[in-house]
Design a protein around this nucleic acid. Sequence first.
DNA 1: CTGAAAGCGCTTACAG
DNA 2: CTGAAAGCGCTTACAG
Lengths: 344, 344
Amino acid sequence: MKRKKPTIHDVAAKAGVGLGTVSRVLNDHPAVRHETRARVLRAMEELGYAPNPHARRIAGGRSYTVSVLLPFVATEFYRRLVEGIEGVLLEQRYDLALFPILSLARLKRYLENTTLAYLTDGLILASYDLTERFEEGRLPTERPVVLVDAQNPRYDSVYLDNRLGGRLAGAYLARFPGPIFAIAVEEEPDRAFRRTVFAERMAGFQEALKEAGRPFSPDRLYITRHSQEGGRLALRHFLEKASPPLNVFAGADQVALGVLEEAVRLGLTPGRDVRVLGFDGHPFAEEAGLSTIAQPVEAMGARAAQLLLERMRGYQGPPREVRFEPVLVERASTGTPPAALYVP
Amino acid sequence: MKRKKPTIHDVAAKAGVGLGTVSRVLNDHPAVRHETRARVLRAMEELGYAPNPHARRIAGGRSYTVSVLLPFVATEFYRRLVEGIEGVLLEQRYDLALFPILSLARLKRYLENTTLAYLTDGLILASYDLTERFEEGRLPTERPVVLVDAQNPRYDSVYLDNRLGGRLAGAYLARFPGPIFAIAVEEEPDRAFRRTVFAERMAGFQEALKEAGRPFSPDRLYITRHSQEGGRLALRHFLEKASPPLNVFAGADQVALGVLEEAVRLGLTPGRDVRVLGFDGHPFAEEAGLSTIAQPVEAMGARAAQLLLERMRGYQGPPREVRFEPVLVERASTGTPPAALYVP
DNA sequence: CTGAAAGCGCTTACAG
DNA sequence: CTGAAAGCGCTTACAG
């Protein structure tokens, strides 16, 4: 019933060419005549050929795989990031292996030389601040490493200017009447990761408010974990301190969504009684009509993958820094027409 | 500086044996004299030899890898489950590849024959109810499949008796004076997964309460997402309906933790003013002194891995069902001495 | 631009 | 119990 999977030999025979030629077609080698390539491609098609990645790995002496180490938090941010990385990698016939870092012990194990992650040609490390965990702030690996959503002078780093995002948020909300509140997101203390992005957002936010002549008072800050319910609690808290209309900057879209949810539950009108501004620009924010500071997460992932690919191909230059800028997107939750871009 | 990694040839030469013998030692083949084995092992040690998994895969014609497909939710439950699975797999020199199912589209892609997950020798599917998504409730793959935290008559299934867990909770809380409340956990509607475990827990809970002569009234149920803040909101809600002391069953430890947190914030004493019972038996529950219905997650994962390994080795019998039973663990949050096991 | 050959590092019958 | 050989499905110089 099930015949054996076709191999490169079958393709070569069918196309009437040598093995090497088939391999070249597979690898997009330029030195193949157009017509030959077409013939090989057709043979593959007809045979239903799919290359065996393991054979490729042993013959090529590489793994054709990139490890992505990321915090074990299932948020939309990482979904988008992985999507961005994967897009670039698959195009180059690289596989992506995900290593959720459940603990620091596990991160170290990942880097041991007997482990899967180690057998990989390069790694992308997301959101991890290296300096505090490893000696000299270097990972114990000789493979190329690229950081994303993090920064370190020793590695190529792709990151968002979170402070600028906070500034955009502050400058924007300062235009509205009514008191201004903010929700900061706090990480679980027992995580292997400590992120500074939320603190940076808040710092930029307070900076901009001050410059606008509306300094932020600390008692208008609510701190919660990264959950929608956290946003609900925050709004309740704010409403004990002030009456609508009020303005809320949430450090993450998901939390902002909770503010919106609670506002509606309480019979308040978002965009009028409660103006809500999120941070992230996730797709669900658009559906919810949530104004937000959008970050190009997929593009950041893609860029990180490109930098890594270059390193894996031998690029030896000094560490590179790629800084992305967030953008304010206005929607109904701040009472403005949907999808309009705010240009200061 | 960096010499080439040693191969099986180097080991064979150093130990003064043939290639085959080294391979046999690697694979725990019984037909190797004890002394020979020791010699080979020593040679490996001295050389710092580590087998190349890719070579193994192509020579053996198998991937020596198991795919674990699981929902993209980073909870303690999945951390424990993966740990249990991995323990068994690594022992047998199998690798584990994690595939977080970000969407249904992605699940389908995982099963396509060009994709990584497909190249695997078997798969473990966690928490997924197949029947509603695929024709005839079968996955489009010919590899062995084992379900864990889920049940389907067509596949080996390893699961917890969640209803029993709910019953234990109900029978236990019925012993205490004061009103009884419950918190049900709801899944995000847009997830590719729909889990029935939380509903089963609640059904068992209400069943037991009824049998105890203390039927549960629907207005004492609060529904929230799986977050600690959800527990905080729930307790606030309950306190609007009744005064302490009151009893709360939370469908998940994390939510129960939020109840505890809020109780303390409000100056109430857990175990006296508010009795809280969780569900899961996660390590953090012990630290928090949280009474809970404990499930042996690691053991469930390990069992699933064993069943799969048997199938991969050719076992052809009919689908097997392995049912695990939860256990009530009493701690301070219900006012009882820590770590005592409740035996009805 | 293309073919034939060597080789990647293992596993697996097959003899002995 | 053990060795020598064939083979897994590719990639990569090397000729031409």
